[in-house]
């Protein structure tokens, strides 16, 4: 009985991580092409509001998701235009957009606050597969969004690492000059991947407002901050869609663990556990980056011969490196 309860809880973790998986893969693809779209946090909030407003007004769930994707693509197009065509700082533009989209969502979402809207149909079992012990409950008794996220993870990995356009995607983020020489229109492809990634981030919004955290409640919708976590997970995932998705599940699992601990350890104030993801985010980034720090190298060199390889291997295994041309504009002259 107890075991089943944990299993159901873990199945909930997979469902809760689904929007983060979409947003993480979207941003990973954008960054793999060499563009940082820093607007993720604002985009998710704005697309959540828009998706909810559209779905509620038209009573059509799928139009809501379409609207969310459109908002994400539009914001990403502004990032792409400002950084690729106008050569402005990606960080500056993304930062302004993330703040502005949040305020836009609160402003335009005002009339939709607290309304009850449509919801994504509940979980359904996949015949046969759901009968597999443990795995059936975890993976095959979920709603349609979760199944779509599984397909997305598989597809994104095959696309990036096993197909020709995927290899070209890696090329424009790593060595745009040689990609250009091989005949790739680097900036056009960066536009496409930024907008595509933005659309995937945008889908995450309605996933919240129409399913995971159904409804629109303005500033207390509980969506502020998620986008920043997504950006950190992309780094943690080493710009790899599969590793990023695992990061998303790990994050949702730790959040769930926090909730479970809260009921069993009432001594910890709830506010502390609510923000636990953020120090955790810092700590994770510290672990994946510390191997790059100069003083760490020096310290390791000073260590006794017999422990040195083990420590440096450990640091190297955690370390992730961004695409070499991430954030660097490309000029084809």
């Amino acid at each position: 009985m107890e075991f089943n309860l944990i299993l159901v809880g873990l199945a909930g973790v997979i469902a809760a991580a689904t929007p983060i998986v979409f947003a993480t893969i979207g941003e990973t693809i954008t960054e793999k092409a060499g563009v940082t779209n820093l607007s993720v946090n604002g985009t998710i909030i704005l697309s959540a509001m828009t998706g909810f407003a559209v779905a509620t007004s038209t009573d059509n769930l799928w139009l809501g998701f379409l609207a969310g994707a459109f908002v994400g693509a539009l914001v990403a197009a502004i990032v792409a235009f400002s950084s690729i065509t106008l050569k402005q700082s990606q960080v500056a533009v993304g930062f302004v957009l993330t703040l502005m989209c949040r305020d836009l969502a609160y402003f335009l979402g005002n009339p939709f606050m607290g309304l009850s809207g449509p919801r994504v149909p509940p979980a359904f079992e996949i015949p046969l597969l759901s009968k597999i012990p443990i795995l059936g409950t975890l993976f095959f008794n979920q709603d349609i969004l979760v199944y779509l996220s599984f397909l997305l993870i598989i597809f994104a990995n095959i696309y990036v690492y096993k197909t020709r356009p995927g290899l070209s995607l890696q090329g424009i983020g790593e060595r745009p000059a040689s990609a250009y020489i091989r005949g790739t229109n680097v900036n056009k492809m960066r536009y496409i991947y930024t907008i595509l990634g933005g659309a995937l981030v945008g889908v995450a919004g309605p996933m919240y407002s129409l399913s995971v955290k159904a409804g629109w409640k303005g500033t207390i919708s509980g969506l502020d901050g998620i986008g920043w976590i997504v950006l950190a997970i992309v780094i943690f995932g080493g710009w790899n869609p599969l590793r990023g998705s695992l990061g998303a599940y790990l994050f949702a699992f730790l959040q769930w663990l926090g909730l479970v601990l809260q009921t069993s350890l009432p001594g910890i104030p709830s506010q502390v556990l609510q923000v636990a993801p953020f120090p955790l985010m810092i700590l994770t980034l510290l672990l994946v980056n510390i191997g790059n720090a100069e003083w760490v190298d020096r310290t390791i060199m000073g260590l006794p011969e017999n422990v040195r390889p083990a420590i440096s291997r450990l640091l190297r295994s955690m370390k992730t490196n961004p695409p070499s041309s991430l954030g660097v504009p490309f000029e084809n002259e």
Partner: peptide, 27 residues
């Protein structure tokens, strides 16, 4: 009966368009 977050929208739009127009000028 409007949300006061309008000020943030206007401030954001100002910064965004100033950045973009700066890019246009340089181009």
């Amino acid at each position: 009966k409007l949300d006061s977050s309008l000020s943030g929208v206007l401030q954001g739009a100002l910064v965004l368009f100033v950045l973009m127009m700066d890019g246009v000028r340089k181009r």
